[in-house]
Computed example of a mutant assay.
Amino acid sequence: MHLRDIHIYPLKSASGVRVDHATIELWGLDGDRRWAVIGDDGENLWLGEFPRMLSVTARNLAHGGLSLTAPGLPELVVPPATGESVPVGFTGLDRAVTADEVAHAWFSELLGRPARLVWLDDPRRRTIDPKHGGLPGEVVSFAWDAPLLLTSASSLRLLDERISAGAVERGEEPPGPLAMARFRPNVVVEGAEPYEEDGWTEVRIGDVEFRISELCDRCAVTTIDPDTWVKGKEPIRTLAGHRRWDGKTWFGVRLVPRTPGKISVGDPIVPLART
């Protein structure tokens, strides 16, 4: 087994950026989900409610700022956030630092409602929710419930086969393969058996060891086409037919780094412990 892909999401809910190498911090990939968009009440304006967030490409800049592009809007370079600290509605985190007013206006126009861009100045301030497998002292960025998400290429290929078979049974035209981007992974493994990752409890990628904190339950975000930003029925419809228990559908596993380090595409992936 080896590491096929690495994806960083500089801005929560925006599209990802594929990279060949990444630095692992205790809270996740360096540069991953340190920025987020919130409403006036501090709540996360998340992708499931605002699919147009997927139209945004965000890239980290060397000086600590952010480059933003989206169809129909001017390219924007956001300087490092130095605004006020405001309340935010993220589990395990009470406040974040605002970007400048130009960035707020850019996102307000994109989403058609008041919005603000915020920066998580210190990810060590946000703990992982114990309800999602967090242990004392474990921390996370603006990512949902764990520092990293791992998915398997073979698991997606099997899912694609089942989606196509279901379409044929319904007399529909089989769709093409789903983009892994729908599942928003940080790391993608190649060479595992389909859904083998379900049984891992610890894994090493290159020289970095990770704890599997939990399986990943999937929401309506996976039904948004990353190219058109339109919601459909798949893959949730098919996942619910064979990957549903405890009232949820499941795909991928969440990782917590045991130590900092570096990973690269092509690194071996070795399960260290299994259930």
Rank of each mutant, 00 (worst) to 15 (best):
L73G: 04
A220S: 14
R33F: 00
V19Q: 07
A220Y: 10
L47A: 10
V86S: 00
P147F: 02
I224P: 15
A103L: 06
I8E: 05
A14L: 06
C216Q: 02
V118Y: 15
H242F: 15
G191E: 09
E172R: 12
P80S: 04
G83Y: 04
S67E: 13
V102R: 14
D267F: 05
D145V: 08
T91D: 10
R170Y: 06
L110G: 01
R59N: 09
E25N: 14
L156G: 00
F107R: 07
I128N: 00
S155Y: 03
L11F: 09
K233H: 12
L159G: 01
D225N: 15
A179D: 08
D100G: 09
E173H: 12
R182W: 11
G133P: 05
T151S: 02
G39Y: 04
A70P: 05
V188H: 00
I163P: 05
A22M: 10
R237K: 14
E25L: 15
H242Q: 07
F142H: 08
R218P: 01
S154N: 08
G65V: 11
D20S: 13
P51G: 05
S264A: 15
F107S: 04
L66N: 00
G65Y: 04
G191D: 08
D20H: 06
W245N: 12
V189T: 04
F183R: 01
N186R: 09
A273F: 10
S164C: 11
D122Q: 01
P74Y: 11
L66D: 00
G28R: 05
V86A: 00
P235L: 06
T127W: 11
R125T: 09
A62R: 13
I24V: 15
W106C: 02
T228M: 13
R254V: 05
V221H: 06
P185G: 09
R258Q: 14
N186W: 12
L239V: 09
A143S: 12
V188G: 00
L255V: 05
F142S: 05
N44Y: 14
